[in-house]
Amino acid sequence: MLTSCTIEKPAAPSAHVPAELYAGLAAEAACISPKFLYDALGSKLFEAICELPEYYPTRTEGAIFERHGAEIAQACGAGTTLIDLGAGNCAKAAALFPLLRPSQYVAVDISTDFVSEALARLRQRFPHIAMSALGQDFSSGLRLPDSVRAERRLFFYPGSSLGNFTPAEARAFLRRLRGQCGLDGALLIGIDLAKEKALLDAAYDDELGVTAAFNLNVLRHVNRLLGADFDVRRWRHAGFYNEALGRVEMHLEAREAQRVRWPGGGRSFAAGERIHTENSYKYRQADAIALLEQSGFEATRVWLDPRRWFAVIHARAIAPLGA
């Protein structure tokens, strides 16, 4: 049984992180995984992005939960173990507590300190719910401690975060979740749907430049993790919808030719050369449901906003693949 509030940090703090970053920066087309966008400052900047008029996903999804909350709660059932993936400030899950009435809440986020602080505040409002914070990079594997109840697990993955994976990666990720659902588990997931390019371009390159600051901050994070010497002033943000690939892309573009160094190595970047930092795939509703089915889930209910920009899907775990 969980204590009222426990904090579990990674056992070996990111021993693989330098190797992963080195490999990405050394690739022919340089890249940095989007998970590194979310240090403490990055997490706060993303909170600010969610308040921007251009960034529709958060408020559109929130309106779906507000309008259909009772139906969503009925589909999920009370007394679940609610496992919040990429919990951040825990606000989305907390807003649903009165309806979902979970018996346990597990907040999982790569930014350990950020989610721990959020959970400490949350337990004061909901002292009757057992709570735990897990500081993990769940994108490559989720390790739930024995204290997390195995029965009636409800994985909560709101927002458009599934789009950060390629479709093949998303399928593998969902299959791993299915493996931890047991016989009576389920998934409550937000899916950003395909829409016109102008809306998507504005959402990922806002007028105030908050998204640009969020993207550029990853270079400061890399400097700390690797001991690198990226100069943020020599880079610019580029965010746009790639219609051919059905995804929004975020890049950092070198303003001028430069050499970036880190202990044991470095790389030269030409003016205009880019570092790819994030994808956000946008799905058609039918394709999203098919992806869930291929991953061992059956979509039981789908809720949409009036403009059909966003979908919230409840999916129950079905027989394991190959069973």
Rank of each mutant, 00 (worst) to 15 (best):
T6A: 01
I7F: 08
A11F: 11
V17T: 15
A26G: 08
A29S: 13
K35R: 09
D39H: 09
G42H: 07
K44D: 13
F46S: 08
C50E: 14
R59N: 07
I64V: 14
R67H: 02
G69D: 00
G69I: 03
A73H: 15
A75P: 06
A78V: 14
D84V: 11
A93W: 01
L96M: 01
L100E: 00
A107Y: 01
D109T: 13
D113I: 05
S116C: 15
E117M: 03
M131D: 01
A133N: 05
L134W: 02
G135D: 01
Q136I: 13
G141P: 14
L142W: 01
P145Y: 08
A150K: 13
A150Q: 05
A150R: 11
A150M: 10
F156R: 10
S160A: 07
L162F: 07
G163R: 03
F165E: 06
F165K: 06
A168F: 06
D184S: 14
G190H: 08
I191N: 05
Y204Q: 06
D206H: 10
D206S: 10
G209C: 03
F230Q: 15
W235M: 04
W235N: 11
W235V: 12
G239D: 00
F240D: 13
L245S: 03
A254V: 07
Q258S: 00
Q258Y: 05
V260W: 09
P263M: 07
R267M: 07
G272P: 15
N279W: 03
K282Y: 03
I289Q: 12
E293H: 01
F297T: 13
R301F: 05
W303C: 06
W309T: 13
I313V: 05
H314I: 10
A317P: 08
